[in-house]
Design a protein around this nucleic acid. Sequence first.
DNA 1: TACATGACTATCC
DNA 2: GGGATAGCCATGT
Length: 105
Amino acid sequence: MTSFQKEVYSALRKIPRGFVTSYGEIANYLDTKAVRAVGTAVGKNPNAPEVPCHRVVPISGAIGKYSGKGGVSTKIRLLAEEGVFVEHDHIKDFSHHFYRFNKGV
DNA sequence: TACATGACTATCC
DNA sequence: GGGATAGCCATGT
């Protein structure tokens, strides 16, 4: 477990239910441009049920990927359970469900 | 230490 | 809007 991963997981837990955020947003919250590294850290996700990794999607509004059971299908299902529906591999009202961190508040 | 890989993003066409 | 290319940082071998 690296310090970087702790930062990432900590940020993921801040994401409220029914909302999603992007890797870039997390990177920005951590004051870094390592969006790739964020994806790598989230991908490992040793705390799957403890971290809402399914609430993280690419800024493009697509689904991205999911290392958990069922893969992307499960990710989409989980989001739907929280009120975030997906249509044609794209989140509906993405900007409306997009969550922004409270940086420095 | 150096190289290769990856749940990405921005830019160009 | 979609496909391709370059840049990016951290991790693992």
